[in-house]
Each structure stands twice: as structure tokens, then as C-alpha cells.
């Protein structure tokens, strides 16, 4: 598995898989459990919306790990996963540290630290030092359409990070149905961390070439987002037309991931 005989690498990635899958399943399918575990979380649609979002992102990361399990370790995946794991350790610490002592719950932070350590061990033992060898072409492919999609993806992710820095509350303001609160704002910061990790990973791929494991990650995430968005519309849960910018992004991500996957998959 992972095209290596090193048991420690396999165990580390199995641990990472277990933690990511655990949070993916609980966040997406049973957000009430998470809400019941944290006194700072109220049971409302806003919190369930963000927990579902985090769950889908975790499903994507799990898919990337499964892909690596078959195809071998991939530097670009770790360029995405390690910064993200580190950012989420910071994120959970900030969230809990701001609460009164009797309301603090550091379980998630503990698991995120374990995830981060497991990923770093697997990365260092499996792939050695950092490598920024330049690919022959931009994004590692001569396919102009794929290059364009990757570039749009990079701009989109970087744009979300910049938008958060300029106006942190804009995402909640632009999304009808979401209630502004400290907790909701912290969730938006988490979304920015996802975008930051994607920006780092895309910049890495811009230089060293695209990564199929991240394309698979993106395809799983964007398919789940697309199906969830369609369900929101079909159930009539979208208020005042919803967040048009978010809808356009979800559709764009889905189509972009599909096109890139099907155009590049034959080489893998």
C-alpha cells in the first residue's frame, strides 16, 4: 500500500485517514453530535451548514489518501494536507482558547495535532526533502484547457483569501439564511484556511506539475458540493436566491474538476 514497504508510513497515513474519515462522516452526516459536544455551538442551520462544508472537504482529503494508497505517495498532496492540518491546529486552538475554561474542549485539536504529526512523518520518511523541480510545461501539461482551468482555480482560491482579509464578514452577509455570530465568523476563517491550503498546493503544482491525487480530491469535493447545492435548491431551503457567487463557484469547480479529470486521467 502507498507503494512502500515502510510500515511506519502506512500506519501514519492510516491514522490520518481514520481521523479525516471520522470528521468527514460526523460533520456531514451527524452534525448534531459535534454540536452536542461543544457548548459554544448552538443547534442552528448556520452551524450545520458550515459543519457540512467541513465534512465535504474532509471526504475529498480521504479520497486523495485512498488514491495515494493505490498509486503511491505524492508530494503535492502533502503540500495541501500538511499546511491545512497545521492551520486547523491553530484554528481549533484559537476557537477554544477564546472560551471560558469550563466550556473548552480540545478533543478536535488533539486529533488534528496527531493528524499533522502523522502526515509530517509520512512525508519526510516517504519522500525526503522538499523538491521544487520545475516541470517542462506550466502545470506539467501541454493541454491548454487544463492549464486555463488550473489558473482560474488558483485565482479563485487566492481571491477568497484576499476577500476574507479585506472583508471577513462578507461571506455571511452575502449568503441569505446564515446568521452572523462569533462562531459563524470562526467557521468562515476555517473556510479561508481551506482556500489558503489550496492556493499553496496550486502554486506548487504550477511549478512542479499537476497532481492526480489532488485532482481526485477536488473532484470528490466538488461533486459533493454540487449534489448538496442541488438538494438545497430542490428542497426550497435557499432563501432570497441564495449566494449567487457561491453557486457560480460550486458549478465552476464541479465542471472544471470534471474536465481536468477526464482529460488527464488516461495518463495515470
Amino acid at each position: 500500500m502507498f507503494k512502500t514497504d515502510d510500515k511506519l508510513i502506512q500506519i501514519c497515513l492510516a491514522v490520518s485517514y481514520a481521523i479525516l474519515a471520522l470528521y468527514a462522516i460526523i460533520n456531514y452526516f451527524n452534525p448534531e453530535y459535534i454540536i452536542s459536544q461543544y457548548s459554544s455551538l448552538e443547534s442552528n442551520d448556520t452551524n450545520r451548514f458550515f459543519l457540512g462544508w467541513y465534512g465535504m472537504m474532509n471526504f475529498g482529503a480521504v479520497a486523495g489518501l485512498i488514491y495515494m494508497g493505490y498509486k503511491g505517495l505524492d508530494r503535492a498532496y502533502f503540500t495541501y494536507a500538511i499546511p491545512l492540518a497545521a492551520l486547523f491546529v491553530v484554528w481549533t486552538y484559537m476557537g477554544q482558547a477564546s472560551l471560558p475554561e469550563d466550556q473548552q474542549n480540545f478533543t478536535a485539536m488533539g486529533l488534528f495535532v496527531i493528524n499533522l504529526v502523522a502526515l509530517i512523518i509520512a512525508r519526510v520518511r516517504g519522500l525526503g526533502g522538499l523538491d521544487f523541480t520545475k516541470a517542462e510545461n506550466m502545470w506539467g501539461t501541454s493541454d491548454k484547457l487544463c492549464q486555463t482551468i488550473f489558473t482560474i482555480g488558483l485565482i479563485g482560491q487566492a481571491f477568497f483569501v484576499v476577500q476574507y482579509i479585506v472583508a471577513p464578514g462578507s461571506f455571511i452577509e452575502q449568503t441569505p439564511g446564515l446568521e452572523a455570530s462569533d462562531v459563524a465568523q470562526r467557521f468562515v476563517m476555517g473556510l479561508m484556511f481551506f482556500s489558503l491550503a489550496w492556493t499553496i498546493a496550486l502554486l506548487y503544482q504550477l511549478r512542479t506539475g499537476y497532481s492526480m491525487s489532488l485532482i481526485v480530491t477536488s473532484l470528490v469535493i466538488s461533486t459533493m458540493f454540487m449534489c448538496t447545492m442541488l438538494n438545497f435548491y430542490a428542497s426550497g431551503s435557499v432563501q432570497d436566491g441564495g449566494n449567487t457567487f457561491l453557486s457560480v463557484n460550486i458549478i465552476g469547480n464541479f465542471l472544471g474538476s470534471l474536465i481536468v479529470f477526464f482529460r488527464l486521467q488516461s495518463q495515470h
Partner: peptide, 17 residues
Amino acid sequence: GTFYALMMVNANFASAF
């Protein structure tokens, strides 16, 4: 199938369906 699956596992979506 994924669309229907996510609809059925989510109580709000399932009720609306």
C-alpha cells in the same frame, strides 16, 4: 445516485422530498 443519497441522509432534504 449521489444526489439522491445526500437527499435521503439529510433530514431537511428528505422531508422536503
